[in-house]
Amino acid sequence: MLSRTAADLYWMGRYMERAESLARILEVGYRMSQTPDSDGTGTSRNEWESTAVAAGCVAGLAEKYGDATLDSVIRHLVLDEDNPSSIQSCLKTARTNGRAVRPALTAESWESLNDSWLDFTANWQRSLGRDNILAFLEWVKARTTLFRGATLGTMVRDEAFSFVELGTFIERADNTARILDVKYHVVLPAGEAVGGPRDYYQWATLLRSVSALGSYHWIYRDSIQPWLVAELLILRPEMPRSLIFALSQVRACLDAITSAHKQNYNCLRLAGRLHAEIGYAKIEDIIRSGLHEYLSEFLARNDALGNEIAADFHFYQ
């Protein structure tokens, strides 16, 4: 496969995944902002700021729009063309990537991308505001799910498919780690109960943002414990948004891509090591040595893995 094609497929997967994550993060922020005591009293940062932090867009937002509010978040995280990670940019870039490799996609995958962008420009771009933001986020989740379904349901399991998946799961690992990291400072030692009802609510919404609230109850049959949430999102292999799940997918993709040739790939080594380390970790150790430090290191290594993938497959000549 052409290296440029592989790069486009990889980034298409990443940007669609990023759009979905962003929609989830924004939805959580919106729900939190709707709780009675959410107007900032007693806390140092408001929900919109932590939303921007989770999205990795806090600096850009502050620089361009000042305070994080519902309106500035919609402008920067959803509509801002200068922000490469805004939902609009994600949808547009994913579609541009897809268009560049149209022959490598099935009609269903391409049409889901293309329709999403056309629908966005026709029905959302100009009318988006605080009144319809929730409906919009639902729409984003529906569109990204459709794309995911079309890709899984129609694409031949070849190299092209593997690169889309690779991008999807590198991005997902990144997003899950970020979402979890936002709450690092309130993670308590194992066994201790969460503080007030507001805290409880925040952890519940965090779980909801990765569609894991139901799974949490099924797996732990317990009230929400921060360290169990961390375990669920880092170590549980049955949880499709956990770091271990994402990394095992990344490994499987890399194995599929490289199985046909005997070269020595750095990315394979990095992915294998990262995957194994998570696989043998214990949540108690992670928390004892600091969740934030752990997640920061993970994000850096996941980034490095992304760079190694780009180098090994000659994404940028």
């Binding site: 496969m1 052409l2 290296s3 190299e159 046909a260 040739h261 070269q263 497959f313 000659h314």
Partner: peptide, 12 residues
Amino acid sequence: KDNAVFMRTTRG
């Protein structure tokens, strides 16, 4: 290269 045209692929 070497009087031939090549395309860059993920496999070289």
